[in-house]
């Protein structure tokens, strides 16, 4: 089976978020980037596990982005992807990214496309649905378990306050939530091997821009904490009722 894993790059979780050019651009100065945790911890590892379970097939990591993303892609290879593709374009919108990935998947006989349920920077959750639609295949979203038997998958999808267990045949797209796999740390051998695995760079297809971020702003911060006497919880209850009006 050919398993394609979408890898995106996000600022490290403690990164300071600031903007430049009159608040129209994210200021990446001094920002460390990591692989999006949902892509790395769950989507990528589950694809690798699946290949190991089947004893055949290959795992291809794909990223849409500039050459500076190669370091994140190498990490995917170090964790266990067999080969990687980078579509050399700016990852400017969900539509742009989805069209690049769908285009590659169509030409390369992909059975399952894996991706994380969202990125921790733009928190969009749109790419999975878009790729599925472009490929005209089912989309299993927020998956916390996947079992394959032949070409049939049984997938557990998280929904608010519960889960759905679904059956589907390949090809399909699956977005990974916590629980789909156990995080793997790359070892020395993986890191060495990653240097010799192929990382192919391809040109993007053209996409018209349907939406764009016109500007950014920083939300108002809290005005300051009111410290209360631990002996007097009646006072907290009164404040929650009368001042905050939440109970």
């Amino acid at each position: 089976m050919n398993l394609l894993v979408c890898i995106s790059k996000t600022p490290e979780t403690t990164a300071k978020i600031a903007f430049k050019e009159n608040d129209t651009q994210f200021d990446t100065d001094g920002v460390q980037f990591i692989m999006n945790p949902y892509d790395e911890w769950y989507a990528l590892v589950r694809a690798i596990e699946l290949k190991e379970q089947l004893g055949t097939g290959k795992v291809i990591a794909i990223n849409v982005g500039p050459p500076s993303n190669d370091i994140v892609i190498r990490k995917a290879l170090a964790i266990g992807a067999d080969e990687a593709v980078r579509v050399n374009g700016e990852e400017k919108s969900a539509t742009f990214v989805s069209k690049q990935i769908a285009n590659y998947a169509k030409e390369n006989n992909i059975d399952i496309v894996f991706l994380g349920k969202e990125t921790i920077d733009y928190n969009g959750s749109l790419v999975g649905g878009m790729i599925s639609e472009l490929l005209d295949v089912p989309f299993l979203s927020y998956a916390s378990n996947l079992e394959m038997e032949g070409d049939t998958a049984t997938v557990t999808c998280d929904i608010e306050g519960g889960e759905e267990i679904l059956k589907v045949k390949t090809p399909f797209v699956i977005s990974a939530a916590k629980g789909l796999a156990e995080q793997r740390i790359p070892n020395m051998r993986g890191i060495m091997m990653a240097k010799r695995k192929p990382l192919v760079v391809i040109d993007p297809v053209e996409v018209t821009e349907n939406e764009a971020i016109a500007s950014y702003s920083i939300p108002d911060s809290k005005s300051g904490v009111k410290l209360l006497d631990p002996e007097n919880m009646d006072e907290l209850v009164r404040l929650l009722h009368e001042e905050a009006k939440v109970i």
Partner: peptide, 11 residues
């Protein structure tokens, strides 16, 4: 955006 650290104004 950025897990609550910023707001994006989408056109």
């Amino acid at each position: 955006l950025f897990s609550g650290k910023a707001i994006g104004h989408y056109q």
